[in-house]
């Protein structure tokens, strides 16, 4: 009986502790390309399964001024433990961004005491005529940078 009560108290304490350790972070995602890009798509996950995506906002380029495409239903329902984010622009080539550009900011909630291990993958980045550009994707967050 003592063991049972101790187990219950331990699980209760751990659940309370877990709820207290919830935090929110912003993740800035950057695309670095020498060529101007008109479309991009990336995936973001957490290998430690601590992450829930709670929002996505656009980056710094004026031609990608609207909120990017992402699964809004999954985010709204609190089930987005990963996310696919993408956007495209029909702007002329001379208006398209190049260099290191912040393309999106992802807002996440982290549960637990552990550190997230973000897995950021570039799915594609193309020029305005659909050619794939040689680009590098990276992120910056409160917990460090990943490339």
């Amino acid at each position: 009986m003592r063991i049972l009560i101790a187990s219950l108290l331990l699980s209760l304490a751990s659940s309370v502790h877990a709820s207290e350790s919830t935090s929110f972070k912003t993740i800035d995602v950057y695309l670095d390309s020498e060529e101007p890009f008109a479309a991009w798509q990336f995936t973001l996950a957490d290998r430690n399964s601590l992450m829930r995506v709670v929002g996505v906002e656009n980056g710094e380029s004026p031609v990608f001024s609207a909120t990017p495409y992402y699964d809004r239903d999954a985010v709204a329902s609190g089930t987005a433990d990963r996310i696919i984010v993408a956007d495209f622009s029909l702007a002329q080539r001379e208006q398209l961004p190049s260099g290191r550009v912040r393309i999106a900011t992802v807002h996440v909630m982290l549960a637990g005491d552990g550190e997230p291990d973000f897995d950021l993958q570039l799915v594609t980045a193309t020029t305005e005529d659909g050619h794939i550009v040689d680009a590098v994707i990276s992120l910056e967050s409160d917990t460090g940078s990943t490339r």
Binding site: Q41, T43, Y69, Y70, D71, A74, A80, R82, I83, I84, V85, A86, F88, V123
Partner: peptide
């Protein structure tokens, strides 16, 4: 575009 980013298409992406 929304079909492309749907989490149900995660494996394809």
């Amino acid at each position: 575009a929304m079909k492309v980013v749907s989490l149900s298409s995660w494996e394809k992406a």
